[in-house]
């Protein structure tokens, strides 16, 4: 089969008539589009169509079968709904602290691993391990790990004389339970990314600094950190994109409503609750668009901020 195909394309070459040169070129071009068919079929069907359909739905009252045009009412409902703004608050609260804790901590661990005299690879493997377990299984384990009476975290805190917390049993501390889980799960990723980029810094810079008598801490402060700007920007952006879409772990820990008392319901969980437990497709679609715009604007801001730093 491949041979026939080969002949078809090879033939015009032999005759080299001036007029058919364009035709041949077009044929080759068409072949290239064939390579793209699977991907672009997917993009049209599973990305472009849903985005437009979702936009349309956000102007309708819909439960999946009966639809009625209601203009901007869904947006009004969402934007004036207290639970929605609560979910936005929760999402940002958990995201800010997860990122503010995990990136510096992960970078410090990566720097330590990069310069430890022994066990470099061992630590790399160990620290990345939480990240390979699914966040769903991790959340399931953490529900027990953070249990106020029987969990190991409170036990350890008490043992070293630190104050304990009610974690998931109390709306005022439950977000910190999610933050702890998120940091534990994400930090391995940060370490791997940082390590890869740490090793890309040219050793000559360190050599030069050493000759000038800089201590290893000074080298870290004045050579390593400034050279990691791009890496931090990447982690910041991917971190926020992930944080704004947070759903899996809060669903396992608090169900679709983010119990206790909606204290860990994220934007994703709000959309799931309205869309798939209440089957209010119009309202959920409007909420997804608002969330989409929040993510887009926030990513652009992040891009801008991190570019200025570079």
């Amino acid at each position: 089969m491949a041979k026939d195909h080969l002949k078809v394309i090879a033939q015009p070459d032999k005759q080299v008539p001036v007029g058919s040169h364009k035709q041949r070129k077009r044929k080759v071009q068409v072949t290239w589009y064939l390579f793209l068919i699977p991907s672009f079929l997917g993009i049209l069907l599973f990305l472009v169509y849903p985005i437009f359909e979702s936009f349309r739905l956000s102007f309708y009252q819909s439960n999946g079968t009966i639809e009625k045009f209601i203009g901007l009412q869904n947006f009004q409902t969402v934007l004036t709904s207290q639970p929605f703004w609560n979910s936005v608050w929760n999402t940002f609260y958990i995201g800010i602290f997860q990122i503010a804790i995990a990136i510096p901590l992960g970078f410090i661990f990566a720097s330590l691993i990069n310069t430890t005299p022994k066990g470099k690879n061992f630590f790399k493997v160990i620290y990345f391990l939480p990240n390979v377990t699914s966040i769903v299984a991790a959340a399931m384990i953490f529900a027990f790990v953070l249990h106020p009476e029987m969990g190991i975290v409170n036990y350890a805190l008490e043992a070293v004389g630190l104050p304990t917390s009610q974690w998931l049993s109390d709306p005022s501390s439950s977000k910190w339970a999610v933050i702890l889980l998120a940091v534990w799960h994400w930090i391995g990723f940060i370490i791997i990314i940082c390590l890869a980029n740490l090793q890309a810094i040219s050793p000559e810079m360190y050599e030069a600094a050493k000759i000038d008598g800089a201590s290893s801490f000074q080298q870290w402060l004045f050579i390593t950190i400034p050279n990691m700007g791009g890496t931090f920007a990447f982690l910041l952006i991917t971190g926020w994109i992930g944080a704004l879409q947070r759903f899996n772990e809060v669903y396992v820990l608090g169900g679709p409503s983010g119990s206790p008392a909606r204290s860990i319901q994220t934007m994703g969980a709000f959309i799931y609750e309205r869309g798939f437990t209440g089957f209010e497709f119009g309202i959920a679609s409007a909420a997804t668009y608002i969330m989409f715009i929040i993510i887009l604007v926030f990513t652009l801001i992040n891009l801008k901020v991190s570019k200025m730093k570079l």
Binding site: P50, I51, L57, Q245, I271, G275, A284, M291, F292, T299
Partner: peptide, 10 residues
């Protein structure tokens, strides 16, 4: 850049 959520219902 396109998250899953806006595509979920369609």
């Amino acid at each position: 850049m396109i998250p899953m959520e806006p595509r979920l219902i369609p």
